[in-house]
Design a binder for these strands. Sequence first.
DNA 1: TTAAATCATCGTAAAAATACGATGAAAGGA
DNA 2: TCCTTTCATCGTATTTTTACGATGATTTAA
Lengths: 108, 108
Amino acid sequence: MSKSKICFPDACCTLGISGKKQERFVKMARALANPIRFEILKFLVTHPGCINVNLVKYLPIAQATVSQHLKVLLEAGWITGDISGRATNYCLNAKNINWFKSTAEEIF
Amino acid sequence: MSKSKICFPDACCTLGISGKKQERFVKMARALANPIRFEILKFLVTHPGCINVNLVKYLPIAQATVSQHLKVLLEAGWITGDISGRATNYCLNAKNINWFKSTAEEIF
DNA sequence: TTAAATCATCGTAAAAATACGATGAAAGGA
DNA sequence: TCCTTTCATCGTATTTTTACGATGATTTAA
């Protein structure tokens, strides 16, 4: 193994989170930890079902980069993406967002 | 300006978070978004006031790296560090943690 | 005084994240 | 059919993050 790779310590067993649940939580936090992606989430609150192009017009970045950010949010579970014709409608994933909030509440 | 730097879009004004508050929230999320740092926070729940050396023994990384992670957590507001002799006692910063939780609650 | 313990910081290397333009696929309109 | 719209993905460049060893400062113990 090379010397620099993100290290994953064995889970501390003293709290109500570890393993897959902890990974899921950290992954959601990571997706949240970027100004553009945070802005996308905010935009989706008021523009549910909006498409890629809407975000490209709103944000100061290229279309390819918006797609990339949407992918990160999708894979972390913050949003859903439903293909409809040639567009894709993005929405907040309320279920996962609630899970994130209640998990944060329960951890600390 | 070079082409690749993290972009900060103008704040979307439709939600109860923007500007400094939003920056603070994203910064805390960023600090949270690393498995080692998450483990440090968990460790601090059960070992309040612990010192750098305790964490070095617990975690699979070098002392310098632990220091670096503690600095990130400090600057994001997740923890406090009180110098006592040659050691530094680290604790969770309950006030800021509560702020993070309630802000998450209020945003979405 | 000397040695050990504790820790932050520096310099650096490797990996991951962020951004872009180009491209091609798929769907819909002219 | 042909053109436009929409979008994901590829390759690539740059920046940021993550990690290490070395070093020196500071405090305590012997």
